[in-house]
Design a binder for these strands. Structure first.
Lengths: 237, 237
DNA sequence: GATTGCATCGTACGGCGTACGAGTCAATTG
DNA sequence: CAATTGACTCGTACGCCGTACGATGCAATC
């Protein structure tokens, strides 16, 4: 009754995934569904970027009317949240692992997290939206388990998880926004060298010109893990 | 001539800051200027958030017509870039410092960076926009100098700067989006405990409920600095 | 056959960014 | 002093957006 303003219309109940197949579709196209909407939204986002996702175009791709989406989704914002959560799905590592493999396990999970998002660069720009979908929570839970097994005390888990999350998200968003095209790179080159009297150190480090993103990510990650989890692979390596 | 599509109109030349004061303003309000536009944009962003910044409202606040802004700015995107750069201004540390103080210096610069952005939470959501304004470059240059003085080799500077940048930006964006209000916190509480069978570790760590953001930031930062810069404050502390 | 509830969609509204071109006024030029 | 120029302002209008609303259609149920 006094619902905010969203649920005035019905909405597909979030109970089970009942594969109910209706007798025949109302049109030639398959019927709408949350899954279809979200996967198509990801396609559209991949193709056109964040600004390219418009409800009308999404509906077009689905062979549906624009307003039909709102039976399933509630708002465009919700589409973003669901799409972001979808690309973060994680199936875990295939093989079982030894107890001492926690570190490889953690690195794999975090590298894969970043890689998943970089496969869909638009996802990095949605990071500021406080979405905690099931897939994100799954990853966090798994990360917590790994750290726990590595000997991190419960009291320190909070800090460890957040530090790693922060680092991974920062690395993702930076890479997604600063991985310049060839043209951009030469432009940046010129700009920096033109201002080189003001920014000599930046120029010397070739910060924007040939960064080894993945290597840098891995290295910083190692340092963080060294500090956050005790023992094993001491920092005197 | 073959300019993209933006500079078809004139635009305040970016030469010097000539404090040319015209004889009398065309209206009672002070005349428009890039500075006035950007500072007012920051005010509006502080008050209304990212979605609250509309060209018409910005113009209203300035006592001007909406289209007058476009003489000075070129597009709304540019306003965002300029506003982001403005809040990142850094005047460096007041006192001079000893050569061995590099670590305090670095921590101060990075903590202040994060604090500056948290003072304007909208700025975190603009991080994905590849803006390298002068103030951001200044900070990066200063950070590079500090690390250089700490003994980081030129070849490692790139990695060190990016690792720190990534961590700081991640911590900022996370804190800005996940620092929940009291209501949100209890809602999250309920949600997590309801799903506690799926996420026992997250629940145990009280991840969203009482995180010590600033402490966690500081701790992770220390670990990164331990790894990135050799010597001093060894990891056996 | 009537009712109910799920699902779809056409229309329309208000608001957005901004292109365009006409206006104003100070400084410059002859 | 008149004419011209160029820096700056702004009213209007266009196209597009998200989505509220209400009218449908259709399957299952009574």
């Amino acid at each position: 009754m006094a619902a905010k303003h969203s649920d005035t219309r019905g909405k597909r109940s979030q109970r089970q995934y009942v594969p109910v197949q209706s007798a025949q579709p109302p049109h030639a196209d398959p019927p709408l569904s949350l899954e279809r909407i979200v996967t198509t939204a990801v396609e559209l986002l991949d193709a056109e970027g964040v600004d390219g996702l418009k409800m009308r175009r999404l509906a077009d791709r689905l062979g549906a009317g624009a307003m039909s989406l709102y039976w399933h989704v509630g708002s465009k914002e919700e589409v973003f949240d669901l799409a972001l959560d979808l690309v973060i799905e994680y199936s875990g590592r295939p093989q079982v692992f030894e107890p001492e493999d926690w570190r490889d396990e953690a690195v794999h999970l975090l590298q894969d997290w970043r890689a998943s998002m970089l496969r869909h660069p638009w996802s990095a720009s949605l990071l500021s939206r406080r979405a905690l979908g099931p897939n994100i929570l799954n990853r966090l839970e798994l990360l917590g388990k790994i750290l726990s097994r590595a000997g991190v005390a419960d009291a320190d888990l909070n800090v460890a998880i957040w530090s790693l999350w922060n680092y991974v998200m920062g690395a993702t968003i930076t890479r997604a926004s600063f991985d310049l095209s060839e043209d951009d790179r030469t432009a940046a080159q010129q700009r920096i060298t033109r201002l080189s009297e003001h920014y000599p150190t930046i120029e010397r480090s070739r910060l924007l010109l040939d960064s080894d993103w993945d290597g840098a990510f891995r290295k910083g990650l190692d340092f963080l893990l060294d500090g956050l989890a005790p023992g094993q692979k001491s920092c005197s390596r």
